[in-house]
């Protein structure tokens, strides 16, 4: 076993010297996960809001499904997206497999249930409070969705951050659909998996450390948001 000291030494060396290889991987990871979260927000937030506001038959089933999908193992998502994007699959003609686009799709699929489920919960709670007041003002269902999305923005941003945390840290899905191709689809988690399999625990730990810093940053941001929201009583 290499000792922790060496691993951390290597980690700091990589970070402090802004190692080009490391930087490339970190930047790609951020680009992919941020894109996935943006997409997941565009899909998940309205979806959650509509589920919170509109009553329709089968709504309970959709809500239950959404909650269950939150716990979907990334490998399963990766496998499903692989089967869709594979040349032999229904979307194979687009040639997206083993590209960052495929990874964005997989992470979006992973994050949408989280964002939508949290959004639904938050917005439904707020809807009970707002419903009669908004109806008196003549606001229809669509306007209600918009108003609730905006007024729940603090909690919803936290939901997006939670989704980002899941996206940036998962390996199972992106390694299958991205292929961990050097300079093309290699992100932090797949690089960690690779370095571990090479037995290069120092480099793996170095990358893990960067990931940890990002996770801490995201959580600090979420906490700051909650504080700011509490100060304005927006939560």
């Amino acid at each position: 076993m290499q000792d922790f000291g060496a691993a951390f030494g290597e980690a700091f060396r990589l970070i402090l010297t802004l190692d080009a290889g490391l930087l490339e991987i970190v930047v790609l990871s951020l680009k992919i996960s941020l894109s996935a979260v943006a997409l997941a927000g565009l899909i998940g937030l309205p979806l959650g809001a509509v589920l919170a506001v509109v009553r329709f038959p089968g709504r309970a089933v959709v809500v239950t499904l959404l909650n269950a999908l939150m716990g979907l193992p990334p490998v399963v998502v990766g496998l499903i997206v692989y089967l869709m994007l594979s040349r032999a699959g229904p979307l194979g003609v687009f040639g997206l497999l083993y590209t960052p686009a495929a990874m964005i799709i997989a992470q979006t699929v992973l994050v949408v249930p989280i964002v939508a489920a949290i959004a639904r919960q938050v917005i439904e709670d707020m809807r009970t409070e707002y419903d009669e007041q908004l109806r008196v003002l003549g606001i229809g269902p669509l306007g209600m969705v918009r108003t609730l999305l905006w007024d729940a923005r603090a909690s919803l941003l936290t939901a997006l951050l939670a989704g980002f945390g899941r996206a940036i840290a998962e390996v199972g899905a992106v390694i299958i659909v991205g292929g961990n191709i050097d300079h093309v689809t290699r992100v932090m988690t797949t690089a960690i998996a690779l370095e571990t399999s090479k037995g290069d625990l120092a480099l793996a730990l170095g990358l893990g450390f960067v990931l940890l810093v990002i996770a801490v940053g995201v959580n600090a941001l979420a906490m700051g948001l909650r504080r700011a929201a509490a100060r304005g009583a927006y939560a």
Partner: peptide, 28 residues
């Protein structure tokens, strides 16, 4: 209600939107 009737309602527990005071009025 969709005609935004000239009818106001104040509830026992006021429902204020999570926005500034001014934005609350602008919203209505």
């Amino acid at each position: 209600r969709r005609r935004a009737p000239k009818l106001g309602f104040a509830f026992q527990k006021p429902v204020t939107l999570r926005r500034s005071v001014r934005a609350n009025i602008r919203y209505a």
